[in-house]
Measured scan of single mutants.
Amino acid sequence: MPSETPQAEVGPTGCPHRSGPHSAKGSLEKGSPEDKEAKEPLWIRPDAPSRCTWQLGRPASESPHHHTAPAKSPKILPDILKKIGDTPMVRINKIGKKFGLKCELLAKCEFFNAGGSVKDRISLRMIEDAERDGTLKPGDTIIEPTSGNTGIGLALAAAVRGYRCIIVMPEKMSSEKVDVLRALGAEIVRTPTNARFDSPESHVGVAWRLKNEIPNSHILDQYRNASNPLAHYDTTADEILQQCDGKLDMLVASVGTGGTITGIARKLKEKCPGCRIIGVDPEGSILAEPEELNQTEQTTYEVEGIGYDFIPTVLDRTVVDKWFKSNDEEAFTFARMLIAQEGLLCGGSAGSTVAVAVKAAQELQEGQRCVVILPDSVRNYMTKFLSDRWMLQKGFLKEEDLTEKKPWWWHLRVQELGLSAPLTVLPTITCGHTIEILREKGFDQAPVVDEAGVILGMVTLGNMLSSLLAGKVQPSDQVGKVIYKQFKQIRLTDTLGRLSHILEMDHFALVV
């Protein structure tokens, strides 16, 4: 994948999101292997301009796509893939009243899908469409860049269908997702969380590099694949309309690839034109409109599966009536509230959605109805927002919020430890010299600072030695090549209790 991002070429006709291997024109390309080798690009942008032909009021008969309808489940399912879809609609009884809503608040519980998330729908649909058009064949390999849930859905379907599955996901995604993927037989590649989507090191860039190296491999490409919004247009939206008897006044959905909100909203605009569509985008993402909503100094966020630093091709923002931004604290607070007060075992993005819903639905009156999409299960986040310690460490809970008995030293300040200034190293000294210094002084790690004293990161003896043994660096290389740029900081005025929580999850903390 090139470091400079080429513009994806656009073909003359058809839909841009065809499933299957992508040609340089962004659509299915038939021909000899030699032709494909000559024409197939190194990668295709996940934010390529959409060429979708959908228009409100256009006859369904003019759609270029294969459409399906929700099917009634048999008493005995032939395999677990038949437990994807037909998820329950559940009334939220307490939270709406707590925040003064007059309307009825309903939750579409997508964590009841077989793999635990709304992404099971698009995973199965992308595979079925690729099999139907002859792209996927027995023994082929599926590769997908994902925040985890699409990966789980694909790995689940691949396990049943017999495909090899490789999932490329950023490091910030939970260990629970990784464990589930491994249990399903998927191979996992992790990428830096802070890598831009168009960087060769991003999950998108690495996935395309693997595709170019592995024979008979395919990126189904949830960011561009029409099967993504079509899955929701054909099934999720129809289920909502049936469950609500066609009567709903507002739908609120958090947005990642945009397939969920695009597919549902398009069908609702056709069948229930008075329904307002509300999009939820986390602070630090750029999906919301108008652009002024996205202006923030924050560039990272903890909530998973929603928000991006690019506009995915499948996201149709014209069908969203209003956007709201959400933050991590309210997302996790509301997710825990949904679990504790409503018994809905949902993930953090569901918290984002409901946090926005109780604001947006203030305009609705008694007798009206708001539906929220709860995308995934708490299963993926047992060591994250479900953990009091994690919430404390991230600053989303305060010590006084917890009532468990603490040891005698818990409320003492870090400054009472009488710490001395640490050994520091410059980023320009060599790895070999740094190892000598650390061994001589008896230290395992040291902060790396520039000549102005600005902290650049941390270097550890173990990481340097393993990097040297693996051949990633040489003793003569500058130590700046092996620094940890993500590390926890703590102030002298913070409590030892807070430091204790940090050290339970990290090997060190830097006192500043």
Rank of each mutant, 00 (worst) to 15 (best):
S3A: 09
E9M: 02
V10W: 10
V10L: 12
T13A: 12
T13P: 09
T13M: 02
C15V: 08
C15L: 10
P16M: 09
P16L: 12
P16D: 08
H17A: 05
G20A: 13
G20R: 10
S23C: 05
A24V: 13
A24K: 04
P33Q: 10
E34R: 02
E34A: 05
D35T: 07
D35S: 08
D35C: 02
K36R: 14
A38L: 15
K39P: 15
E40F: 12
L42R: 14
W43L: 11
I44R: 13
P46K: 02
A48F: 10
R51L: 05
R51V: 02
C52V: 04
Q55M: 15
L56S: 12
L56C: 15
A60T: 10
A60P: 02
S61G: 02
S61W: 09
S61M: 08
P64C: 04
H66W: 09
T68R: 10
A69G: 06
P70R: 15
K82N: 13
K82F: 10
K83M: 07
T87Q: 02
T87C: 02
V90R: 10
R91A: 07
N93C: 14
K94L: 10
I95Y: 02
K98M: 13
L101W: 02
E104M: 02
E104G: 11
L105E: 02
C109K: 05
E110C: 02
F112S: 02
F112Y: 06
F112G: 02
A114P: 02
G116S: 02
K119I: 02
I122Q: 02
L124Q: 15
M126F: 07
E128S: 07
E131A: 10
E131Y: 10
R132M: 15
R132L: 07
D133A: 02
L136E: 02
L136H: 02
L136S: 05
K137C: 02
D140Q: 02
T141F: 12
E144L: 05
P145C: 05
P145A: 06
P145G: 10
S147P: 04
T150S: 02
T150F: 12
G151S: 07
A155M: 08
A159W: 02
V160P: 02
K172I: 02
K172A: 02
M173S: 10
D179M: 04
V180I: 02
L181S: 08
R182E: 07
G185F: 07
A186F: 02
I188K: 02
V189S: 10
T191L: 04
T191R: 06
T191H: 05
P192C: 09
N194L: 08
A195G: 02
R196A: 05
P215V: 06
P215L: 05
N216M: 02
H218D: 02
I219K: 02
I219V: 08
D221N: 11
D221T: 08
Q222W: 02
Y223A: 02
N225H: 02
A231V: 09
A231R: 07
Y233D: 07
D234P: 02
D234Y: 10
T235W: 08
T235Q: 15
D238K: 08
I240P: 05
C244G: 04
D249L: 05
D249K: 13
L251E: 15
A253L: 15
G256F: 02
G256R: 02
G256W: 02
G256H: 07
G258L: 02
I261G: 05
I261Q: 02
I261S: 02
G263C: 02
K267H: 08
E270L: 10
K271A: 09
C272K: 04
C272V: 13
C272N: 04
C272H: 15
R276Q: 05
